[in-house]
Simulated scan of single mutants.
Amino acid sequence: MMTNTSPLNPPALGNATAIVTGGAKGIGAAIVRRLAASGAAVAVIDLDAAAAQALADEVPNVFALTADVGDHASMNEAVEEACTRLNGLDILVNNAGWDHVKRFADTEPPLWDKLIHINLKGVFNATHLALPRLVARGGGRIVNVASDAGRVGSSSEAVYAACKGGTIAFTKSIARETARHGIAVNCVCPGPTDTPLLEEIKQDERAAATMDAIVRATPDRRLAQPEEIAEAVTFFAASPAHVTGQILSVSGGLTMAG
C-alpha cells in the first residue's frame, strides 16, 4: 500500500501497485520509470507489445501487457491479469493517447472515431475496470493525463481537444463519486511535450509551424520533457486523498489558471 510523505520530500509509494496505460513510450514510459523509482510495482498496458516489453526488461519491478484501451473486453483481460500479478491495485494512470493534427472541416468520421476510441473510451474503460478493485482495496488514486488542449482549445485538434476536455470533466465527476471510498481522482494537463508522437505530428509542415509558434509563446520558450509530466503524475499518485478533482497544467506557463 502507499505511504504518506512530507511535501518537502520526493514522493514515496512504498509497496504500492500501479497500472499505466499507454506506458511503453514518451510520457507513459517516463511515468512508469518515475513510479518504479518511487517504489511502486507497475503494469504497463500498451498496444505496442514490443516497446512495452523492452521497457519492462529495462526497469525493475515492471511488467508488460498488451491491450487496446478503447476495447472494454481487451482491457478487462489485461486489468484482470495485472491485478492478479500485482496482488491488487492502488494507482491507475490513464495515459494512453493519440493525436492527428488536421483542421476539423478536413477530417472524416473514421478519424473522429479513432480519436474518441483511444483518448476518451480508453479512460472510461480503464477507470470502469479499476474502480471496483480500488474500492475493495480501501482507497487509491486515479491520475488522468489529459492536455491543455482540453482546457483552452487547440486549432487543428478539435476532436482531440474535445476528448481531453471530456477527460477533465470525467475526472471531476468521478472524484465526486468516489471520494467516500478514499479514492482521489486528479488530472495532469501537459502542454506540448518532447515525445515521439510530437515528432510524428511535426512531419506535417503546417503542424510543425503551429508547434513552433506555441513554443515561442511559452514563457520559458521550450517544450516540456516527459520526465516533468511524470513528476506531476507521481505527485498526485502520492498525495493525500483530500487532494481530489484537481486539474494541473504542466505547460511552462503557456496557459495559466485565473
Results as ranks from 00 to 15, higher is better:
Leu86Ile: 08
Thr3Phe: 05
Thr17Tyr: 04
Ser6Asp: 15
Ala149Arg: 00
Ala40Cys: 11
Leu89Tyr: 05
Ala78Asp: 02
Ile45Ala: 00
Ala184Cys: 11
Ala169Lys: 07
Ala64Tyr: 09
Val59Glu: 14
Ala40Tyr: 04
Pro10Lys: 11
Thr244Asn: 00
Ser156Ala: 15
Ala209Glu: 15
Lys114Val: 01
Ala16Gly: 14
Val42Arg: 05
Val42Tyr: 01
Ala43His: 04
Gly70Ile: 01
Thr21Cys: 06
Ala257Glu: 14
Leu8Val: 09
Val59Tyr: 03
Thr178Gly: 02
His117Gly: 03
Ile229Phe: 01
Gly153Phe: 10
Asn9Trp: 00
Ala149Phe: 05
Pro226Gly: 11
Thr210Asn: 13
Leu134Gly: 09
Gly252Ser: 06
Gly258Arg: 08
Glu157Gly: 04
Ser251Leu: 04
Leu129Gln: 09
Pro190Trp: 04
Asn125Ala: 14
Ser74Asn: 11
Thr167Asn: 14
Glu199Ser: 14
Cys163Asp: 05
Asp204Ile: 04
Val79Trp: 07
Ala130Leu: 06
Ile27Val: 15
Gly88Lys: 02
Asp212Met: 05
Val250Leu: 09
Gly191Ser: 10
Ala224Gln: 12
Ala230Phe: 08
Lys202Gln: 14
Arg33Ile: 04
Ala64Ile: 09
Ile27Ser: 03
Glu77Met: 04
Gly23Met: 02
Asp57Leu: 03
Ala149Asn: 12
Thr127Asp: 05
Ile229His: 02
Phe236Trp: 09
Arg221Ala: 14
Thr127Ala: 14
Leu13Trp: 10
